[in-house]
Design a binder for these strands. Structure first.
Length: 245
DNA sequence: CCCCAGGGAATTC
DNA sequence: GAATTCCATGGG
């Protein structure tokens, strides 16, 4: 007998449930907005998708995306604050600064030798590229940079350039697999989400993908951890695990 | 496809 | 206080 599983997950329902439970996440947090009125002191801006507003904020998101590779955001924040304190959070300074000084400033973000190279590479790219090209072309250019893989490229596309691209990460794969999708790859997981929201306008996709990714991170930290905490899980009724294990 | 190095800091033992 | 955990990317 043929055994198969059909999953017809309402991805919009997953999104809605997460949003109801965790609320607006306010990504991408901008350290440079610290203390500005109307925002809390971490630079979050819940349910306001109008950022980045300046080229400087755009660049902050890009270097943040590099620095947060394989690293908790808290450690990245320290590195970003160091860069702002020393007034070098701009592409020109990143490019001309000597290797060791830059590496020292970003030490808290880990992998500082690799990330120093990557920051210099992307700063050069940022200052010599016309971003006004189709999303897929821009994505290819980003992926061609050494140290920029799919997650970093898509984070930059979505959060810095406001392109309608969903960001997949390890949390996304873990959560989707538990929900009942089979083994997933980066591209298959992204495809599922893109397909699920294909009727939205590009502007709405940017908002939903922004929030959805941030909500998945929140959910993976609170409930869908490596060792899952299924009690009180907002997705309990949708999930294939359904509390087991 | 798998495995490992890269690094610091939070979490858990 | 020491061991374990977290995790993107690239290269073998």
């Amino acid at each position: 007998m043929l055994s198969f599983r059909v999953i017809n997950m309402r991805m919009d329902l997953v999104y809605t449930k997460l949003l109801e439970h965790y609320g607006y996440q306010g990504w991408w947090p901008l350290v440079s907005m610290k203390g500005k009125k109307g925002f809390d002191n971490l630079g979050y801006h819940p349910n306001d998708y109008s950022y980045p507003k300046t080229r400087g904020q755009m660049f902050e998101i890009i270097i943040g995306a590099i620095l947060t590779q394989n690293t908790a955001w808290k450690n990245v924040e320290k590195a970003l604050i160091n860069l702002y304190t020393k007034r070098v959070a701009v592409p020109e300074k990143i490019i001309e600064m000597d290797f060791t000084s830059l590496a020292t400033l970003i030490r808290s973000a880990g992998y500082y030798n690799q990330k120093t190279v990557r920051l210099k590479t992307i700063a050069e790219w940022f200052n010599s590229t016309n971003f006004n090209i189709p999303t897929l072309s821009l994505r290819k250019k980003l992926l061609s940079l050494k140290g920029v893989g799919p997650e970093t490229a898509d984070s930059i596309l979505l959060y810095a350039f406001k392109r309608p691209v969903f960001v997949v990460d390890a949390y996304t794969l873990r959560m989707f697999e538990r929900l009942g999708f089979g083994k997933l790859t980066y591209d298959s997981a992204q495809g599922i989400v893109h397909k699920s929201f294909k009727t939205l306008s590009d502007d709405d996709k940017v908002k939903v993908f922004n929030e959805f990714h941030a909500l998945i991170v929140a959910h993976a930290k609170e409930h869908c951890k490596k060792r899952p905490m299924c009690e009180q899980c907002p997705l309990y009724n949708l999930c294939k695990m359904n509390g087991k294990r």
